[in-house]
Design a protein around this nucleic acid. Sequence first.
RNA 1: GGUCCGUUCGUCUAGUUGGCCUAGGACGCGAGAUUUUCAUUCUCGAAAUCAGGGGUUCGAAUCCCCUACGGACUACCA
Length: 526
Amino acid sequence: MENTRKTRVRFAPSPTGPLHIGGVRTALFNYLFAKKNGGDFLLRIEDTDSNRFVPGAEEYIIEAFQWLGLPFDEGVGIGGPHGPYRQSERRDIYRQYVQQLLDAGKAYYAFDTPQELEEMRKRLEAEKSKSQQYDASTRMGMKNSLSLPEAEVKALLDAGTPYVVRVKVDPGRMITVHDMIRGEVTVNSEIIDDKVLYKSADDLPTYHMANIVDDHLMEITHVIRGEEWLPSAPLHVLLYEYLGWSDTMPRFAHLPLLLKPDGNGKLSKRDGDRLGFPVFPLEWTDPKTGEKSMGYRESGYYPEAVVNMLAFLGWNPGTEQEIFSLSELVEAFQLEKVSKSGAKFNLEKAHWFNHQYLQKQSDASLVGSLRKRLEESDVKGGLTRRADSYSDAELEQMVHLVKERLHFPSELWSQLYYFFNAPAEYDEKVVKKRWTEDMPAVLGTWCENARKLAEEGKFTAEALEQMTQSLIETGGLNTGKVYNSMRLSLVGTAIGPHIFDIILLLGKDETLARITAACQRIGTGA
RNA sequence: GGUCCGUUCGUCUAGUUGGCCUAGGACGCGAGAUUUUCAUUCUCGAAAUCAGGGGUUCGAAUCCCCUACGGACUACCA
C-alpha cells in the first residue's frame, strides 16, 4: 500500500514575515525529495494565527520561490484538487474533525481563562511539581468538560462561554516516532501535555490539529520539517491514531537547524544585521516599521548558487563534487545522507559558490550591470566619455578581462572604473617604488613610438609590446619600473589586467593623454 | 527545571556492513610557482589523539555504557 502512494510533500510556512533562509532550505530539501521520487511539492499557507499575520508575506514567499526556481506543483497561487491551501479558508473542515475527536472522547472542552492558566503554572511551580503542564495529572483541577458535571458544561456552552478544545492524552504509553534521519524516537505519553487543538481566540485550530488534518486530506506522504518540531512529533503520531489515520500517516524527517556563523544557536534575522549578510532570499521591508532587510537577490547572488549552497548545509552527496545544478541535486539527493547536527552558516563559502556560478555566466550577460553602474556615474559626472558612447561590445571586452576575479556582478565597477575615469591622483607607494626621474623621457619616447605605430595601422598588442620591449632593451631599463609606471599613468595604481589589454580598450588618444598627463603631474608635483 | 536531539580540522563535511583512516575533500588561512602590477590559476603546507572517560574486540571515528558540553522544545505561535 505504501508503495502505491505517490510521493507528496509540502512546504507550509506561516505568513508572519519574510521567509527565513532556514525555511528556504527546508523547502529545498522537500523539493529535492519530491522530485527525486517523482512526486509533488505543495505550498500550504499556515495562517491560523491572526495576530501574527503580516501583509505581503504570502506574496513574498511565492516570489521568493519563483526567483529560486523551485516551482510548486500544487497549492496557494497554483491551485489543485486538494484546496483551499490557505488554512484560514479551511475552518469548516477542521471543525468537523475537532468534533470527531470530541465525540470519540479523545478531546475535551476547556473553559479556563488565560489568568487561570497562569495561576495554575505559578502554583505548580511553587509546589515544585515535576510537570507544570495541563495534562492528566492536573486537568481534573481545572475547568473543563472532564472535571465539570455534564450539566454545567452544557450550561457553559449554551451561554456562549469562550472555550478551547484540548487533546486528551492518556499517560503511561510509549509513543514512537520513526524519523528518517534520526531513527526511532520514543517518549512516554505522560510528558505530552493536553495541547490546545482549537483556539477560541480566532476560532481556528492550532498548528498541531490543522497540520494533521491537512496532511491527511492532502495525501502527504512525507513530512520534512525543521528539528524544532521533533518534540511535538509524538503528539502528532498520537493525533493520527486518534483520528483513525495511522495506516496512512506520513513518514517524518526532522532536519538539523541552521546555526549562527559565530557562537551557538539558531540563525536569526539579527545575525544577518549584525554580521552584514542576507538571511532572506529577497529584500524585505517591514510594513510596520519600514525597516529594510537585505536579500540574496538584491545582494547579487545567483539563485542557483543559493540553492547549491543551501543544499550543502546539512547534506552531502558523499562524493567530492560540490557544484551541482538543480537537476543534479535532484538526482543525487538522499534524505538518509542528511546530517543530524546543526550546520553553521558560512559566508565565505557562500561567496565562493557565487563566484563559481558567476564564472558560468557569459560576458555579454554581465554587460547590463556594468552599464547600469556606468550610467549612474555619468549622472554624477567626471567620466572621460559619456556613458552612451560605449558600445556593448566594448563593455563586453572589459567584462571579459576581469570576470574571473569577481564574486558578484557589483564588483565589476571596482575592477573597471579606471577605464571610464582618468586617474585623479597617483598611488604614492607605487610612485615611490616604480617611478624614476628618467620616466618622463622614457614614456615620452614611448608615446612617440606608439603614435608612429598607430599611423602605420599597427596599434596592436603585439606591436606595442614589441616596441616596449625594445625600448627597454636599448635603454637598458628596468622592465618592472617601465611597465608599472605605464600602469600608474593609466590606472592610477598598480592593479588590473595586462597593460596592453588596457591600452587597447582605452584607445590611442586616451592612452597618450593619460601618459602625458602623468609625466607632467608626477614630474612636477612630487 | 523537565523532555528530546546532537558532538570528526576554525567552518561545511567524507567516513555509515568495525581493519584499505599514520582520518579524505571543500571554504578560509600560509608558502611557492606563473606574471610588468593586482587578481586569477597551479603546486605544496599547517589544521581534527574523531567531546572526555570506561568497556567489547586481535583491531573502534565506527558497537555498548557513563560524563561533559551544545541545541531545540516546554503558548488559545508556528
